[in-house]
Design a protein around this nucleic acid. Structure first.
Lengths: 241, 241
DNA sequence: ACAATAGTGTCTATCAGACAATATGGC
DNA sequence: GCCATATTGTCTGATAGACACTATTGT
């Protein structure tokens, strides 16, 4: 907080832009996607965003973006994560506008009937079939993907006490195969099956589902030996960041 | 960027607050410190900060903070790092004001004759001799220290291709002993001499200083066997973030 | 000679990567 | 029986932590 004589200087419009990330078909054919919307003002694709209204917080503004721009009623768990500020005074020729770029992971179930398209992210972090987004939104998407991938690096996560699939893209119960496929979809790279499974079993965060007779519950697969089912264990404890 | 009808809504005052970190006496008795200033408006200690003037960037505002609040003329290398936004609408009772909290590492040499006090940081991240700062500035300092310590974790840095002492607190040439002491001062914990030195020699980022006859240059110490001198090697390459 | 610090060597535990072998279901 | 997948075991290389030993200076 600064102690200038205030209210006398021009003030910037402050917008919240959201890179909404999700994993679709998490349990069958997981794919990392970003919500992108069509624009007509300048024609092209862009992220949903909105200027902050009087005495709103960024979180409240993000909620408004969901209600008015995305067209869904978000739960209470909305927690946008700040990436950076875009503050080039000439980035909006209409007025002095600063954008607070955020990213937010959402479960696919919460994104039914959204306005816009869930565009798949390719391995190298580009958007499939979209050349470029309007404004500085390509940078926002790149930063969002990088942040999410860092969060889903299961080796780093182990040190940080972050559980696997921390954003819950995959519904319970799940097999380790499904869990690994979700991580692979987020990271854009293959993971070693045995090393991944070994690591997961060391976590306090995943626990096998047991039948009434204490035997491990098994998934009913189409092919191959049935896999054991797991769920997230208690242990929610802290979220360091 | 959002496409509302704009210029019609109230806008927030946007301030840039700076946690300026440095290591004093880097080559002899290094200590991590934060620049804190006395306030009279509300009485207490606070970080330097300032509202953004028309069509300024955050970097330009940070530069103004240095010139007008800190009282020094910063070089061109000013690069404030965003920590978070403080957007509680009631945090400033005078007006709707949002603070963009930044941290920035500075060399001690650049901080001669600053207005304010360079307060030492204790091992647990608290400020020595200061109970609490005004406003939400304790949180900013805590976040700044956490970010700098993460940056100075030499094991993580190795993976990130970040050089040791990436912010150049220590002047060249230096011994590995001095370099380790700087890292210890930042991290607030002791490091193993042999493991640290072993890691440093694996870096492409530090190179031994050689005399004309190709023999390694040695430091002139008060006591003990003279240590080899090192400098930062080329290899500046990328700064991932 | 002694204190103090620099530099080197080595042992151990951990763990990711990699591969092999076995187990268990559907067809 | 055959195929596909799950599960378990093992080997290797890299490396952090820890400790011991030698080297080189000033006093």
């Amino acid at each position: 907080m600064a102690t200038d004589t205030l209210a006398t200087f021009p003030r910037p419009g402050l917008a919240v832009d959201l890179a909404i990330l999700t994993v679709t078909d998490a349990s069958t054919d997981p794919a990392l996607r970003v919500l992108v919307q069509d624009r007509t003002d300048p024609v092209g694709y862009a992220l949903p965003g909105r200027f902050m209204r009087e005495r709103q917080t960024t979180t409240e503004t993000a909620r408004d973006v969901f209600v008015h721009k995305v067209g869904i009623q978000p739960g209470s768990e909305i927690r946008p994560r700040l990436l950076r500020l875009f503050d080039d005074p000439d980035r909006d020729e209409r007025t002095w506008a600063i954008s607070a770029a955020h990213w937010i992971p959402m479960r696919e179930a919460a994104l039914e009937s959204v306005r816009g398209t869930l565009v798949p992210v390719s391995r190298d972090g580009r958007l499939d079939g979209i050349d470029r987004l309007l404004f500085d939104h390509d940078e926002i998407v790149a930063g969002a993907i990088q942040a999410l991938r860092k969060r889903y690096d299961y080796r780093r996560s182990y040190d940080d006490h972050t559980p696997p699939d921390p954003d819950g893209f995959l519904a319970e119960p799940f097999t380790l195969h499904q869990l690994r496929r979700v991580h692979e979809a987020v990271l854009g790279e293959r993971l070693h099956k045995d090393n991944f499974n070994r690591r997961m079993k060391q976590y306090e965060f995943v626990a096998p589902v047991l039948n009434d007779d204490e035997s491990p519950a098994l998934a009913e697969n189409l092919r191959g030996r049935p896999a054991a089912l797991y769920r997230r264990a208690g242990q929610a404890e802290r979220r360091p960041e």
